[in-house]
């Protein structure tokens, strides 16, 4: 029984025919970590945003369905949808420096969802926040909760955002390139932390990244995207052993090997790109005629 089920989701730039997502389908089981990979502009972030209901105003969904924990999200009235998403899902954002409100203290930013949306008593929410901050290895949670974001380092802030994402025990977390904006040294710690928290809480995770190395470490399954279309959806083991799609193979070849990081990189060859684009064009035609 999959916890998140997206079927035939298509989206375009509002008022134009420019496609953002093309007939995307994917399933994430409860407790599963699913990677969304692709180059920038492939639409991987847009899927996460569509699930959380935070697509930019310029993007409109044209077809398809998003089912979260058995709820058909797109058929719910907006206010209801927002509340449901807030109660069952959470986001670990990309840039910890801009994702915390600079004029609010950390404490309320971690507890606000618990108090306002889930109706917890404030004291209980604060206790929970302290526990969570300790859980993400923040020393002196009491002091940090009274601090403003600018008083904390980027790594600290990302830990806080992770704690905040897990606060309401969501069943699904969308992690949108959660390490891209961080120092390389901090990246590893944060990645480890996310994996650790995911395992402990049994949360399903939609992990958006362009880094196949990260995928191989945290994910169980993945979808490869190009031009808003899913090229291949498979398990991580199969993907790294025998990628089925030509684009997947090219992408793998373009990724540095852990065994030999110094080996020269092969960019995705033009021929592969051309083949992929032809495939997408054929798919678009079949959609129009079918």
């Amino acid at each position: 029984m999959s916890f998140l089920k997206i079927t035939g989701l298509s989206a375009r730039l509002k008022g134009t025919a420019f496609p953002i997502l093309r007939d995307v389908s994917l399933e994430v089981a409860a407790g599963e970590v699913h990677g969304l990979v692709g180059e920038s502009g492939a639409g991987k972030s847009m899927i996460g945003k569509a699930v959380l209901g935070i697509l930019p105003a310029s993007v409109e969904i044209t077809r398809g369905a998003i089912e979260l924990d058995g709820m058909d999200l797109l058929s719910l009235p907006p206010a209801e949808r927002r509340r449901r998403i807030g109660a069952t899902a959470a986001l670990i954002p990309q840039d910890p420096l801009t994702a915390l409100n600079p004029s609010r203290r950390i404490g309320p930013q971690v507890t606000d969802r618990l108090v306002d949306i889930l109706g917890w008593p404030r004291a209980r929410a604060e206790t929970r926040a302290r526990e969570l901050l300790a859980e993400v290895h923040i020393p002196d949670p009491e002091r940090v909760m009274r601090s403003y974001p600018h008083e904390l380092s980027g790594g600290m802030r990302q830990r806080i955002l992770i704690a905040s994402a897990f606060a309401a025990e969501p069943k699904l977390i969308v992690a949108d390139e959660p390490t891209t904006a961080l120092d390389v040294t901090v990246q590893k710690q944060i990645l480890k932390l996310i994996a650790e928290m995911q395992a402990r809480h049994g949360t399903a995770l939609l992990f958006v990244t362009h880094d196949l190395g990260v995928v191989s470490k945290v994910c169980q399954s993945l979808s490869v995207l190009y031009g808003g279309k899913v090229m291949e959806a498979t398990t991580v083991r199969d993907f790294f052993r025998q990628p089925a799609h030509g684009y997947s193979r090219a992408l793998l070849a373009a990724t540095p090997k852990y065994t030999d990081p110094a080996a020269s990189l092969t960019p995705v060859p033009d021929a592969v790109i051309a083949a992929v684009q032809a495939e997408i064009a054929a798919h678009d035609r079949s959609l129009r005629h079918g």
């Binding site: 959380l52 206010a79 998403i85 807030g86 801009t98």
Partner: peptide
């Protein structure tokens, strides 16, 4: 347009809040 506003939306808050 800033990220913390988007994050607040995912928490379940409406436009007015």
């Amino acid at each position: 347009h800033l990220d913390y506003v988007t994050l607040a939306r995912t928490k379940g808050y409406g436009e007015n809040h």
